[in-house]
């Protein structure tokens, strides 16, 4: 299958992209709407997430423009973002994230 892009950005606020096919270490990310050339540092399976910009430890992972979890270590651009470096939100974090507009 000939593909124009190897990854997709779901929201412009996101700090991760999703691989549209398995991307090998050494390849460059090609994402519609993103001009920055990011080198992929490790093989990323399709459907998995890739770090687009430096994420410090205990920082928000943003996908769909929303916080989907917190980093458990610093993550550098081009690296795999998954269960080994991300955790879900604690209930206290969820309730503060659930700030409702009044």
């Amino acid at each position: 299958m000939q593909q124009k892009y190897n990854a997709i950005l779901l929201n412009e606020k996101d700090n991760v992209a999703v691989a549209l096919r398995t991307i090998k270490a050494g390849e460059t990310l090609s994402i519609q709407g993103v001009n920055e050339k990011i080198k992929v540092m490790e093989t990323i399976g399709y459907g998995h997430k890739i770090c687009l910009s430096y994420i410090s430890e205990n920082a928000k992972i943003i996908k769909y423009g929303e916080c989907m979890g917190m980093s458990t270590e610093k993550i550098l651009p081009g690296y795999h973002v998954h269960v080994f470096n991300v955790r879900g939100l604690k209930s206290s974090e969820r309730s503060s994230a659930a700030h409702i507009k009044s």
Partner: peptide, 10 residues
């Protein structure tokens, strides 16, 4: 590729 419950539900 889904990492957290938040991500799946989103």
């Amino acid at each position: 590729g889904l990492t957290t419950l938040e991500e799946k539900s989103l």
